[in-house]
Write a protein that binds this DNA or RNA. Sequence first.
DNA 1: GTAGGGTTAG
Length: 456
Amino acid sequence: MVCRLSTRLLNICIASLCRAHRLDKAETVIADSIRLGILPDAVTYNNLIDAYCQLVGVDAAYHVLDRMREAGISPDVVSYNSLMAGAAMEGLLPRLQGLFEEMCQKDIHPDVWSFNTLMHCFFKSGKPDEANKIFWYIMNNDLSPSPATFNIMINGLCKNDFADYALTLFWYLRSCGLVPEIITYNILIDGLCKAGRVRAAKRILKELGKSGSAPNAITYTTVMKCCFKNRQFRQGFEILSEMERKGYTFDGYAYCTVIAALVKVGRTKEATHYMEQMMRNGIQLDIVSYNTLINLYCKEGNLEVVSKLLCEMEERGLDCDKYTHTILIHGLCRSGDIKRARQHLHSMNMSFDSKLVAYNCVVDGLGKDGQIDNAMDMFKSMERKDTFTYSSVVHNLCKARRYRCASKLLLSCVRNGLKLLDSAQRAVLEGLSDSGFPSEVNKIRSIIRIARMSHY
DNA sequence: GTAGGGTTAG
């Protein structure tokens, strides 16, 4: 009895050390307890497996499984579920499948958690069909789906362009005896917003209001972000005020959303206010918050603080990502230092897709600097181009009054199934008509109309 | 004891 009670105390202690990321200390406590005759049980090891997965990696966690067996304790479904969650977190689908098989071979029956994790990893690995199969396996084999089953499905479907299917599942959920959670609403609202289905998202938000459960800070951040993405800044900032009025706690996500939006509309003073508040509230900066702050200081032209932040990141062992580089390149272009921007772009050791936005910045920077031929050269050298690449070049060609060249690009853009930004399209059409090519204008208009129809 | 929100180009 005493020993069992002590093991429970040991587990409470280990759980709290793991939460505090103090793995070394947890190991010392376990070793000391064993010396005192207090033996760890399955819960102790499962806690440890979970912590190793999150803090070190699934391989390190697997060693704990070996130690568990050596201590005469059989790993159970929780041990395997934790390991599989670790593999899913690292996106290691084959590893997860291996663990799943190993578990079945050892006659440990997978539960709905195991299947949920498998489904999640299939989605993460870009295999929505496989995930869908698992979902229907759960449904058809009476494995009692949990709310998480639906959350993972709805999230995965939204992120893989199946927003309609996600909506259907949302309405279907109740007939399985489940009630949507706040997470379910948040996932769906975000998914629909990102799919451009703002009206459907509003309907779900209304549904949340009717459900009796309250939106949380994540709901607010999600909806706010959706407004900003659609350039509805006024509405977005109204949601911000409401969030403040109602006393919601801001975390790093909320602060970064607000700061980035304020920077985008040029309200850097207010952005600085929120940044200071974020610092005062002791929010730990991660790579995304550093990028947000670097962007703010770039916009203000305070390059001294930018380099200070970069040093700080390095000291803390945080690597610059594509966003950091793109923000810096954009900052250099804006300050008129196109040469350094180009150098920085070429020093980026990443895939072309990760560099696309940075390329767009430099192409635009060259055009704005009056180097339209250099801009065209860079444009031609690009492996892939998007709406922004075309729009920026077209805009700059119009500025240089090279309307014929701009209209050719506009047409090739349409042929590639891309839409030019309205402002760029207008610039071409107005330019052509002003410089005496009205028939050209009509031709382009009808080609655009036909292209749009064929895309529907 | 899973699952959700944040950063770049116009």
